[in-house]
Simulated assay, not measured.
Amino acid sequence: MDLGKKTLRRRSFVALSWIMTIPFGMVSFGAAVSMSDGVDVDAFAVMAACLGVIAVARRILGSRITLGESELAIVNPVVTYTVPYGMIAAVSGGTGGTLTILTRQADEIHSTGFGGSLIDHFVGSTDRAVEQIKCRLKHRPKHSGKDDMQRRFTVAWFADTCGVGALFCAASDVIVGM
């Protein structure tokens, strides 16, 4: 069995991410181009709104689970959890279909990338992800060298760049509008 790095994510999240990014990006670009004749306060507001939508959408839709050789990472919109396989007590699809990792310290970690949905009830992407994680747990290394779960802020470069751009455009809108 190949125990290399593997990323689990819903295909719909990837598609929706691009469906949100491309049109809102084009509108934002169009607003920027419209200012070639002069500064327009409304264009800054449009760019701020579009970039803000892209930032939020990319953070949420970038949620995923990464299976490594000795640990898994649950990447949620704000916090990323890295859990060594030896610390995982149980993996379940939950009552609402949300993928949940239960650690040996009784921490419950819910995956935004595999949250419950009506469509998933029919498609079964959460159940497939649970099975892949359980399979990885059966073939995990005896000792990974890491004993603690780690929590850290999720870095999403594209989303964060759009968020900073949205703040810059909103500040420009306020300053120019005075």
Rank of each mutant, 00 (worst) to 15 (best):
L3C: 02
G4N: 15
S12I: 12
F13V: 06
F13E: 07
A15K: 06
W18R: 01
M20H: 13
T21H: 00
I22M: 08
I22F: 11
F29Y: 11
F29R: 00
A31L: 08
S34L: 07
D37W: 03
G38R: 08
V39E: 12
A48W: 07
A49W: 08
G52E: 04
G52W: 01
A55T: 02
R58P: 01
S63C: 11
R64L: 04
I65S: 01
E69Y: 09
A73L: 01
I74C: 15
V75K: 14
Y85H: 09
M87P: 03
V91D: 06
S92C: 03
G94V: 03
G96T: 14
T98K: 13
T100C: 15
T100G: 09
I101Y: 06
T103H: 12
R104I: 15
T112P: 03
G115N: 11
G116L: 01
L118M: 14
V123R: 04
T126H: 00
V130K: 01
V130G: 05
I133R: 12
R136E: 06
K138T: 15
H139S: 14
R140F: 04
R140D: 07
P141M: 13
S144P: 02
G145F: 07
D147H: 13
Q150E: 12
T154S: 14
A156K: 09
D160W: 13
D160N: 04
T161L: 13
C162D: 01
V164S: 06
C169Q: 10
A170G: 13
V176C: 13
